[in-house]
Computed example of a mutant assay.
Amino acid sequence: MVTKKVVITNPTGLHLRPAGNLCKVAMNYKSHITFNYGDNTANAKSVLSVLGACIKCGDELEFKCDGPDEEEALTAIVSAIESGLGE
């Protein structure tokens, strides 16, 4: 299992479009991908789970990837977030 903390920089947070883009990236990998925010955990492959987290600009998320392609999955997720998730 690999983990990394990332700060959301999108001005409007993770609303539908960036949440969908995050899920698209996550679904390209076989690994189980989740993120922690506060005391809660969300599935990065579920749009409803990501939207339900109500992530705002400046929030810090800790992503956890566990599986056969965990390193590549984590790198892709972090890269997508740092590039703004299509915003």
Rank of each mutant, 00 (worst) to 15 (best):
V2G: 00
K4G: 00
K5T: 14
K5V: 12
K5I: 05
I8G: 10
T9D: 08
T9P: 00
T9N: 13
P11S: 12
T12P: 06
T12A: 14
T12F: 15
G13F: 07
G13V: 09
L14I: 00
H15W: 07
L16C: 12
P18R: 01
P18E: 04
A19K: 05
A19S: 06
A19P: 00
G20Y: 05
L22S: 01
L22F: 02
L22H: 00
M27S: 14
K30I: 13
K30Y: 10
I33H: 03
I33T: 02
T34A: 11
F35W: 07
Y37F: 14
N40F: 11
N40Y: 12
N40P: 03
T41L: 10
A42G: 09
A44W: 06
A44D: 03
S46Q: 02
V47T: 07
L48Y: 13
V50T: 02
L51Y: 11
G52A: 07
A53H: 06
A53W: 05
C54Y: 10
C57E: 13
G58C: 09
E60L: 14
L61P: 02
L61C: 08
L61Q: 08
F63N: 04
K64P: 04
P68D: 15
D69M: 06
E70I: 01
E72F: 07
A73N: 09
L74G: 09
T75F: 09
A76N: 10
I77M: 02
V78G: 04
V78F: 08
A80H: 08
A80M: 11
I81D: 09
L85G: 01
L85S: 05
L85A: 06
G86R: 01
E87V: 10
E87Q: 09
